[in-house]
Design a protein around this nucleic acid. Sequence first.
DNA 1: CGTCAAAATGAAAACGGTTGTCAAAATCAG
DNA 2: CTGATTTTGACAACCGTTTTCATTTTGACG
Lengths: 129, 129
Amino acid sequence: MTNRREAVREILSHSEGFRSAQDIYAQMRAAGAKIGLTTVYRALQTLADSGQIDVLRTDEGESVYRACATGTHHHHLVCRRCGRTVEVAGPAVERWAEAVGAEHGFTAITHTVEVFGTCPSCTAAASSS
Amino acid sequence: MTNRREAVREILSHSEGFRSAQDIYAQMRAAGAKIGLTTVYRALQTLADSGQIDVLRTDEGESVYRACATGTHHHHLVCRRCGRTVEVAGPAVERWAEAVGAEHGFTAITHTVEVFGTCPSCTAAASSS
DNA sequence: CGTCAAAATGAAAACGGTTGTCAAAATCAG
DNA sequence: CTGATTTTGACAACCGTTTTCATTTTGACG
């Protein structure tokens, strides 16, 4: 069992950036896997619940998933053109978030940070066009 | 014209936190306004396009809107219990985002930051329970 | 091996928020 | 007033996601 779930995790861990559920489903079908869309969703949900993968929503309302290298807290620097993702640690932001929360008397501070930009190769591609 | 659009903006500017489109629609109908859901969406879109309001997606995939006091770039500190929102400026984060992007050769850096916590009164309420 | 119960699977339907369509209504020239 | 233009809103279409439910797979036990 959980053969499918592991297959999904495999795909994710070999992917560079964020992948959508449908994207993963399409890839698995293209690779000849006999799997249903439902199962992909369920696998992703289970993996997310157990903290093995990250989930976030795109501006278009699609959920995207990513297997992160480390289990520790970190953020992402995402290329807005090609989707290339770099994991970045940011002690400065962590401290800032804590400070800003404390300043207003808030407790149990958490935060989400996403940095977007155009990666070197896409910047080159864009300027040459 | 744009009577409806202004009505929508009115609602938003008198609201404390983020409101969903359907939420706003419901309130306007409850208040007796003759307006369609489509028009609310259109008004919100127009306002967002012209930068007069902020949009973001909840984890549930719903778009939520907010009229911000200032037109300048800032972030939000949101109480996860009561939804109370404080606008916070964060020069430190801006600089950090720029730096982290530049470090990896990314250009045209933008970022989204949301800080969540439990506000003073909710913290008190929780501990007394 | 059978047998049966529990878990996993997937096709299709349901769902919910959002967006498109299109005809009717309001608004604006002239 | 008349005709053109814009705005409007009821409704259908869309799209990603979730639920449903019948079927299949799995695993324990005799």
